[in-house]
Design a binder for these strands. Structure first.
Length: 477
DNA sequence: TCGCCTTTT
DNA sequence: GAGGGAAAAGGCGAA
């Protein structure tokens, strides 16, 4: 939650009435440039008091109606919603998490034993430097180098040699478990309060695209893929007589791409509830939609997301493990299949160069040129810019949804709580006896109607007592 | 404090 | 010719 820097005629801070938040305002006005401390900001505006600062910032916001709307109707009311989420917290089954920790200890001990037999036990497995030297110089693994000249020992690099050098499989397993234990088990237990509640902090001005950041602890990167990861996630539980309900936007960023670009083929696919990764694959491989193979779909999916991220043919060839010429061919074929996407990005980048700023659908802006004297967009900025309207618009929508949810749902059902937001996912805690009251449908409706789009939006609902063990929800009527 | 690595969307 | 997928948090070792 943003820190309150200026408060006008504030009758009740608890209710966040008549509040102006200079940090949030400053972040929107700064358009992605780093914002300074309170004192630096006062100096920048050449004012003495925070009230004067707030007045000038408000004037500045009002010059841009979209930005003013974003501030007053989304960001500022959101601060109150985030504050309440932070205060509420999510319940952690600390006893169970301790047990998971002990299970990991056992697995790590046995792995360490196996690995020490090969290394002699005199290297620190947690040191990439020591590990790289050992693998490359003693074992003879042909590791590539990092940009600073050290041996690269990251997961992608080591996996390449896992078959040839069996020790690597154990090393990767060791890494994974060590990470889970230190980042998730130990620190989460330590951060639970006296009631076993975990209180994250949300920062709403940290990320240029407008996404929220979660910290101390970060609840937006709780593991999900591995089995042990799932066991950790399952230690987050609903409080007694309540159930966790998660609402997850399906393919939200690709839907936003379809909307922003107006690409007919993509819009039709979403309208017909088709699998867009299969659709892209069918165009790339020129096979009928029904005959797309699984590995072809994987390529389609990689290209779809790669385009959103402005991926180069090099990045794509690395990601798919294919020659760069093939990747170039795929990208070419992609744009040929979706011509409106190419037109959109051509125009978008042209305007970015002309105006020096880009913006999301709700008008959040970011700068284009680090140095305003240079008027060329380099490759890395090009990728940032291509991602910005997609990720940023998705973030705008989610923030607005949270404000709408607060007004339309949380006010009406005070015993219902919004616990978490994970970019395209909201997690609520709902009393068991309210689950069939229609509230799930109401929340879905708020999410799907946040902003009219050229495509339908879909929200998948999952419910359960443990966050890591939720089941698809199908209403019985 | 920086670099490397791993986790998420 | 190098570097070459967006946005993050955070643990750890090395200096």
């Amino acid at each position: 939650m943003g820190k309150m820097l200026a408060v006008w005629d504030c009758k009740s801070l608890e209710k966040f009435e008549n509040v102006f938040d200079c940090y949030i305002a400053e972040a929107l006005i700064a358009e992605g440039h780093p914002i300074g401390s309170e004192e630096q900001t006062l100096q920048k505006y050449t004012v003495q008091t925070v009230s004067d600062l707030a007045l000038q910032q408000q004037d500045k916001l009002l010059e841009n109606p979209k930005l003013a709307k974003l501030y007053f109707e989304v960001e500022l009311p959101l601060a109150k919603v985030l504050f309440e989420m932070e205060q509420h917290g999510i319940l952690l089954d600390t006893k169970k998490l301790h047990a998971v920790g002990e299970k990991i200890d056992g697995l790590l001990d046995s792995l360490q034993g196996k690995i020490d037999k090969e290394t002699g036990g005199d290297i620190n497995l947690n040191s990439p430097a020591q590990l790289g030297t050992f693998l490359a110089d003693k074992v003879g693994v042909p590791l590539s180098r990092t940009k600073t000249g050290k041996y690269a020992t990251n997961e992608g690099e080591l996996s390449k040699f896992a078959e040839q050098f069996p020790i690597i499989t154990n090393l990767l397993k060791y890494r994974e478990l060590k990470k889970l234990r230190s980042t998730y088990v130990e620190s989460l237990i330590q951060k639970a309060d006296e009631n076993s509640l975990i209180h994250t902090t949300y920062n709403q001005v940290m990320v240029n695209t407008g996404r929220l950041a979660s910290l101390n602890p970060n609840l937006q990167n709780i593991p999900v893929t591995s089995l042990i990861g799932q066991e950790i996630k399952s230690c987050f539980i609903a409080k007694p007589n309540h159930t966790l309900v998660s609402f997850d936007y399906s393919q939200q960023e690709l839907r936003i791409l379809a909307h922003l670009t107006g690409e007919k083929a993509l819009i039709k696919a979403f309208a017909d509830d088709q699998d867009v990764h299969v659709l892209t694959a069918s165009k790339l491989f020129t096979v009928p939609y029904e005959e797309v193979a699984k590995d072809q779909r994987t390529v389609g999916k990689t290209i779809n997301f790669g385009i959103i991220y402005g991926m180069s043919s090099y990045g794509m060839s690395a990601g798919l493990n294919i020659p760069q010429e093939h990747a170039e061919q795929f990208i070419k074929q992609f744009y040929a299949s979706y011509p409106a996407i190419r037109t959109y990005y051509d125009n978008y980048l042209k305007n970015a160069r002309i105006h020096g700023t880009v913006e999301t659908l709700l008008g959040r802006r970011r700068y284009v040129f680090e140095d305003p004297k240079r008027k060329l967009i380099d490759n890395s900025m090009r990728r940032v810019l291509m991602n910005y309207p997609i990720q940023g618009t998705a973030a705008d929508f989610m923030k607005k949804v949270m404000v709408d949810v607060d007004r339309e749902i949380l006010n009406k059902y005070p015993e219902v709580s919004l616990l978490l937001t994970i970019h395209d996912d909201l997690v609520f805690e709902i009393p068991d006896d309210k689950l069939n009251s229609g509230i799930i449908r109401e929340i879905q409706n708020v999410m799907t109607s946040v902003h009219p789009l050229a495509v339908p939006t879909t929200v998948d609902v999952k419910i359960g007592k443990e966050w890591g063990n939720l089941n698809n929800y199908f209403p019985n009527n």
